[in-house]
């Protein structure tokens, strides 16, 4: 064939100087970035920080900060493992939220089950699973699978060393808390996802795409935002 495509090895290379110049030309104001930070504080529920930030930066938070308080107390309850009181508070806030989200409700109940198991309340765990979770599992095969996995925790003496260790991890609480947080925001007609994580994910995606075509200084450390040197072609 008379294919004219070049082999992949001939990637375009950007020098560090060239790249720095491009970076310097990007138009972004401090105000833009302040908004990005405020958006994160508000959506993630850092009420006190958002308040202080509003004072120090002169930026309006865009929403009534007191509405953050409810969300935060609910989030804190889940992160502390107190699922029951979180459910109570959500229902005080807006009973529709759990009524209209069977999956979310299941995950909350599942988290409750996990907390029983974590604290060694085996009898309560089994009773709770049979009474509350099993009927839901029958309705939905996806739920059933998750329930079975959670119950399998009981088979391990040391749950943190089991393949299911992630369920008893703190991150699982955070995951459940985030899911509930999003649902509350949606119910309040607010954006549910902060923009900053999207920006990071977008950068990962974009750098991976450009990697196939070019050699350029990459950001691999997303905490410092430092550029790595341009890899040499070869």
């Amino acid at each position: 064939m008379t294919s004219s495509t070049q082999p992949a090895s001939t990637k375009k290379t950007f020098s560090a100087e060239e790249w720095d110049k491009k970076l310097a030309e990007v138009s972004v104001s401090k105000q833009d970035l302040n908004k990005l930070v405020m958006n994160y504080l508000v959506i993630e529920g850092y009420k006190d920080a958002a308040e202080k930030f509003s004072q120090e930066s002169g930026l309006q938070p865009g929403i009534d900060l007191s509405s953050i308080q409810d969300r935060m107390s609910i989030r804190n309850a889940i992160q502390a493992g107190d699922i029951e009181s979180a459910i109570e508070r959500v229902n005080d806030l807006d009973p529709e939220i759990l009524d209209t989200n069977p999956k979310l409700y299941f995950h909350l109940q599942q988290q409750r089950l996990i907390e029983f198991i974590k604290t060694g309340k085996i009898a309560e765990a089994i009773e709770f699973a049979q009474e509350e979770l099993a009927p839901r599992g029958e309705e939905n095969p996806e739920f059933l699978e998750e329930l079975e996995k959670t119950m399998a925790l009981l088979a391990f003496e040391e749950t943190t060393a089991s393949p299911l260790a992630y369920l008893v991890d703190y991150a699982q609480r955070q995951k459940t808390a985030s899911e509930l947080n999003s649902a509350i925001l949606t119910a309040q007609c607010q954006e549910k996802d902060p923009k900053l994580p999207s920006l990071l994910k977008m950068l990962v995606w974009a750098q991976n795409q450009l990697d196939e075509k070019a050699l350029f200084p990459k950001i691999n450390n997303f905490v410092t935002g430092e550029l790595d040197p341009v890899p040499t072609s070869g």
Binding site: L23, V26, V28, Q209, F222, V223, G225
Partner: peptide, 18 residues
């Protein structure tokens, strides 16, 4: 420069080059 700004600038330039 704060890291967030680095990230934003980098994302903009990478997209532009794509």
């Amino acid at each position: 420069m704060p890291a967030i700004e680095n990230v934003y600038r980098q994302a903009t330039v990478v997209i532009q080059e794509l």
